[in-house]
Amino acid sequence: MADLVALREASDLIATGRPLMVAGDATLLARLPKGNWIGGTTPYFMSRSGGIVDRERVFVSPLDTSVSEAKVRVYREDELQRMVDDYPGNGCSFIIVPAGSLTHLRFDRECGSLLGLFNSPLVGWNAGVLLNELATESPKVFDGTTLQSYADAAVVLHATLPAEFAAKIEIVNPFRQGDGDIITFPQSGFVVTECLVNGKLADFADYLEARSIDTRWPLVADYAGAQINVSFQGIDKTPKQVRLYAPVFEGVEYRLAEQVSDLAGFFGREFAARRVTPTFSCNCILNFLYAELEGKQTGEATGPITFGEIAYIQLNQTLVYVSFERMT
């Protein structure tokens, strides 16, 4: 069962050979034994007891016993196509990438053009660090088979499932497109200056400030009904620009998100309604902060609190989960 556990318990679980995702402080991950696991750094968690900041324990997400084979691989930023080529014939690939690394940025920009990206489920998260240590510490990912850690690579666990099972990735996004302006961008990227507001050229920083936009709420794109967020990192005066936690893409129509009341309660209610016990789930650090999730519970949706989420593509401010379902 996925939860925060002491190092000893995590080590015992690793010794069973069961494939695992592990999250925690780098010093703890470095003390785990070799085994069939991948790990990433974060000190923030949604445990069974509620949201918590913890540097004494690690969060383990054991993969379901239906997994027949698990292969751990490490991919540098120029090897992401090989990651897709290594997808299992039937299964799910679990990925962890350090937030802000070149691998992360390249994945975000180019994932949509990786050939075969959608041919098999890809789910995961961006590793982070304690927020007040951002200036001095780097997020890391761990290959549990070698105990090597990386500040700039993707670790991936390719899990094979028997033919009668399928991995199903879902998201819980509290944000939907509002009914305001349609915003597009003449250039894709993480840093934006110009935008088009209902087709008319404008400065994006000026647009946000003139309307006193609350940048806790993201931009939202509509992908055939799936609401996909792009979160605001900051608005700079010199140079005048808007920084984002994921790239916006040329040609995509965005709107600012509708206001959400009771962000904290949303996740628990929504997850309870879905009646699913996921094999892995994670939620965004921005949701942890803005919904003040420390001390609050979100039902069966336990897991690391992450600095970006991955459900085939990069997501922001979203709860992501995967379950293995027996297909009839």
Binding site: G112, S113, L117, F118, P121, K168, I169, E170, I171, A221, D222, Y223, A224, G225, A226, I228, F249, G251, V252, A311, Y312, I313
Partner: peptide, 14 residues
């Protein structure tokens, strides 16, 4: 399916 939706959003851009 979420995967279908995200795929379709990407496909239409491409």
């Amino acid at each position: 399916c979420l995967a279908s939706r995200i795929m379709y959003g990407q496909v239409k851009l491409i």
